[in-house]
Design a protein around this nucleic acid. Structure first.
Lengths: 118, 118
DNA sequence: TCGGGTACTAACCTTCTGGTAAGTATGGTT
DNA sequence: AACCATACTTACCAGAAGGTTAGTACCCGA
């Protein structure tokens, strides 16, 4: 496995939560899936400018293992796979909301730019 | 610098918030300082079983740069330095609370152990 | 038949993160 | 004189994280 699942032992809840959110694109994937409900692999790739296919799959697989993401395969040609959030994924996203607000405030304060879709 | 300050550009608020919380001990430091109000270097070291002095200082310096932590030096011998949270640090900690609750729930669900003080 | 789109997998390589162990300056204690 | 504590700093190293490039199998439209 590229990233070993840790699954504890943990110091505290934040530690446990960070364990599943850490990864360059995970919070963005969470947000995309929450926003669109259901997304195909290529849609996610296009929605996250800069992800490599390798990282996208790796993160999706880990999030599936962690019970945050549901993966639905349609046995068709060309292949079709749909990703969506599980209940845990949705609640995690909800728990991340205040952090998102804090971050948005911070961006305003320090005057950082937001990334624009290249 | 060991860990370059990123300070954007960011995709979104969560991205910006994660940028300052990412680091093996940062959320724990935040929690310790929030809990005790003010802590000396050696107190923090003892409060976070397993941190190396190098990482502790590195994280504290980054958090100071990021405006989360205040560092008060007393010019005495032996040296005395007190760390505390800034307003931003306190509000970040508050924003992390729901995530902590989610993580605690998750620990219960998956039955992971909590780390015990070795 | 060539290129494009689907969803991946594999090999390789670089960068980043964190750990270990040692050293520094100062003074107090034994 | 040796040793402890304070708060660091420095050098070196291992492993994890992430990027790049290419390849797979299948079908469709030009």
């Amino acid at each position: 496995m590229a990233t070993a699942a840790r699954r504890g032992p943990y110091f505290c809840g934040i530690d446990a939560a960070m364990d599943v959110v850490t990864g360059k694109w995970k919070s963005l994937i969470l947000w995309e899936l929450h926003h669109y409900g259901t997304r195909r692999f290529a849609e996610l790739r296009r929605g996250l400018p800069g992800v490599s296919e390798k990282m996208l799959i790796q993160h999706l697989r880990e999030m599936e293992e962690d019970g945050l993401v549901h993966r639905e395969v349609y046995r068709e040609v060309p292949p079709k796979v749909e990703y969506s959030l599980t209940e845990d994924g949705v609640s995690l996203n909800t728990a991340l909301a205040p952090l998102g607000r804090w971050g948005t405030e911070r961006i305003r304060r320090i005057g950082a730019e937001k990334v624009s879709v290249k």
